[in-house]
Design a binder for these strands. Structure first.
Lengths: 133, 133, 133, 133
DNA sequence: GTGGTCTAGACCACT
DNA sequence: GTGGTCTAGACCACA
């Protein structure tokens, strides 16, 4: 499991970490029950502070992506993923609004938007049946 | 043109302003050549700082959404909108990645994602032919 | 609004802070819309680190007790308090279990338990109509 | 005597153990003089560390719930239970404070609180006259 | 060795 | 001046 972080980005490091791990789960590089690196281990690997890693893990825990226990450390939630319920969908729609407004102004059609999002979907699912990692 | 700002939101006010104005253009409530409220007027209307409004307008100018003239003040760019070129699409795909990864984890299908984004598209286009505002 | 913290206690400082503020709201010393001290101000008043205060504020925000905005800092949620819904009641019952099991073993009757909890209730409500603070 | 441990919980395992055993006594599944499982046996049953079980037993001993003999191992105190004396009541009141403050903020009445605690009391006493376990 | 807590001190974004 | 982020380094509880 390779995590790439851009220290220059405006996106906070802990957010990049959260995104990278969620993407790892989506790509099935990380499977339910898999252990994540220890806070200190990952921090030193990435050359960042352990608090930054900890914050990312706490967010993932709060959202239901991982469990934190005293024995194994942090593991991908083996029981369930966060639900695609109504509150989530509403939040997602709200978050997509600025992107879609921008797209409309630029003359991007719904079909082009779908095509673009499809390329992202497919990119993530490409590896699903071929994980040697 | 109604602008709603949420002071509790984590999104910076100037970003909310930019988003609201871009959305106004997408909804065709704001047409090319239309004047935006003056910096002072908008700031006092919303009860926010002059600098905040100014920052939003500068960003809109830099992205090509508006022009700023000494005489007319700030007007929606009458000549063109920002383009849907390759760099833009790549940036958009990059920005959508975290949302799509999250959606995949939650079990949202591409079809459901499209359906959800369609509802946002349609919501914005509903008013296209009926703007007396 | 006086906040007392016991630095020697086994209870984490940020938990003590959360408890003290919730109790302040229960006692109506803190009313909806009231501003809480700034992170730095409270930290220096209490002689503790600003991160510790910040953690307490973040928890209160997450639970819905306060709002954090860029202008006024942290304020007691003016719109609503957390709900007494079913998940909350179940959680509360779960948390009371060890205390009640202990009480039963010691021979404390339900009536004595109610009496004891009443004294706590009344202590908190005593000030309700007399806050000069 | 069934002991359920939640490794994901924030509550330390030894505390969970203590709570579970006290609850077993309250439910009269464990009677004065009854032997508790051996440290080794319980640890391997639950898949946890010897030290953890030991710590729980030491706490129970210190509180007066059990006696530890060389011969019989750990037995529920046949002579007496911890008392419901004044120091205990004061401590209990202190521990209930955060819960009651929270309840008040959420609009839970004293009557609803009593009702909720009654359900816990009754749940524990339900089995009193029918323990074949 | 794991995460949890706390400190001291720094820089930045926002208003 | 506010909170948000990050660092460096420390001690402790838990297993």
């Amino acid at each position: 499991m390779l995590l790439e972080i851009d220290l220059q980005s405006e996106v906070p490091i802990y957010t990049q970490l959260v995104n990278a791990i969620v993407e790892g789960i989506a790509r099935k590089r990380l499977l339910p029950g898999d252990a994540l690196p220890s806070v200190r281990g990952l921090a030193s690997d990435l050359g960042i502070n352990l608090h930054t890693v900890n914050k990312a893990y706490q967010i993932l825990k709060q959202e239901g992506y991982v469990q934190i226990n005293r024995k194994q450390g942090v593991v991908v939630n083996p029981d369930s993923m966060p639900p695609a319920d109504q509150p989530y969908r509403q939040r997602l729609a709200e978050q997509l609004r600025p992107f879609i407004a921008d797209a409309i102004c630029r003359g991007l059609t719904k079909e082009q938007f779908d095509e673009l999002s499809r390329s992202v979907f497919e990119d993530m699912r490409r590896e699903e049946n071929s994980n040697v990692d």
